[in-house]
Design a binder for these strands. Structure first.
Lengths: 194, 194
DNA sequence: CTTCTTAGCGGACCGTCAGTCCGCTAAAGG
DNA sequence: CCTTTAGCGGACTGACGGTCCGCTAAGAAG
């Protein structure tokens, strides 16, 4: 698996330039007026380069989201508890939601753009699949009596750019994450299903 | 409030034709290739007429969704229990989710199109606001210790076209609704918050 | 350093979309 | 029947996501 012998220096530089340009536009301009033309222009590359690197608008957003959540993914897979393996599932879930909530609170515009771009088959997104699988496993271990596949989707569906924005105020910057965690606790502590 | 003296017969007929055309395209073609050009063509009217009547793509989708959920809205406001006033909040909530779930299961494509069209400020949609308010009130009455404003959004965020489609199989056509209800029950029966 | 190969670039181009505009038609009222 | 004007239709616009292909320059080889 160690092919792709050489990647031209230009290619690497352009990839980074495009990602940075997209991030800047998302931060500055809110969300959906981040057109690929604009991204290309700000990155100082041609439009074709953006599509060569990322395939589509959705691909670009996925790459951006993956970049922002890479650390969390690694911490979950092989980091120390309670995020990583070893802690009881309930604690791992709360730690994971804390991490994901932090990302969401700092990247609401990216979340919106990502939802928009991945309108169909959002569930096919690699990051989404990883998150769902992780929540699913933890929930299933803690509460096998519930429909955990659905609940994992339910917990993730809350990470919506507009909802995050609406819940995040300067005087209570972590209300979103706290409420998501409260919801998870409520689900975990609910009466066993008949 | 009985102004709008006359609405020309043509206008009424065209409004209905546009709504029906949009419904047909949603049913047949899945979701997002329901362009307003196509709707206008199928309805046998000009594009301008669509915009005169509904203002925008979002307006059309809102009108469609409102039409589909009008009966539920009325039943909630003044129908018999457990949907209408009189029953305890938990039962009313489950009845409401049952009704909304039924609508969602039969209109997944419309849900997707609506989400797409109302990408920004979905929370400003009249139907959404009504639903949120209703769930909020019921939850707040049953569980004032929780962040009910957030939880109402969380319950509604699950009514996503793709998620509904993914959960609805021929052999278990009401799995989505059942799981949503289970989730609500779990929230209602969770341990009181510290 | 020069030459050759080709990965990779750029931006003109395309089809489609939401939304606008305005001259015309025909519906309703007298 | 005539007048008024609500309402119609569809050409038009600007912007978008995505494609295409001729050219450039990066890197390997000598």
């Amino acid at each position: 698996m160690a092919e792709q012998r050489h990647e031209r220096a230009n290619a690497v530089r352009n990839r980074r330039a495009v990602l940075q340009a997209a991030e800047r536009l998302l931060e500055e301009g809110g969300d959906e007026h981040v057109s690929l033309d604009r991204v290309a222009a700000l990155a100082g590359v041609g439009k074709g380069t953006v599509f060569r690197r990322f395939g589509s608008r959705a691909g670009l957003m996925q790459a951006l989201l993956e970049e922002r959540s890479l650390a969390l993914r690694e911490a979950v897979a092989e980091g120390p508890p309670p995020l990583g393996p070893g802690a009881p599932p309930g604690e791992r879930l709360l730690a994971f939601l804390d991490g994901l909530g932090g990302i969401a609170e700092h990247n609401a515009a990216l979340l919106t753009a990502h939802e928009q771009a991945c309108a169909d088959d959002k569930q096919a997104d690699p990051s989404y699949m990883f998150w769902h699988r992780h929540i699913y496993d933890l929930l299933a271990e803690a509460r096998p009596d519930l429909d955990t596949e659905f609940l994992a989707h339910a917990l993730l569906s809350v990470f919506d750019g507009n909802l995050v924005r609406g819940m995040t105020r300067a005087d209570d910057p972590r209300r979103f994450t706290a409420s998501v965690q409260d919801m998870a606790v409520a689900l975990l502590t609910s009466a066993p299903r008949t």
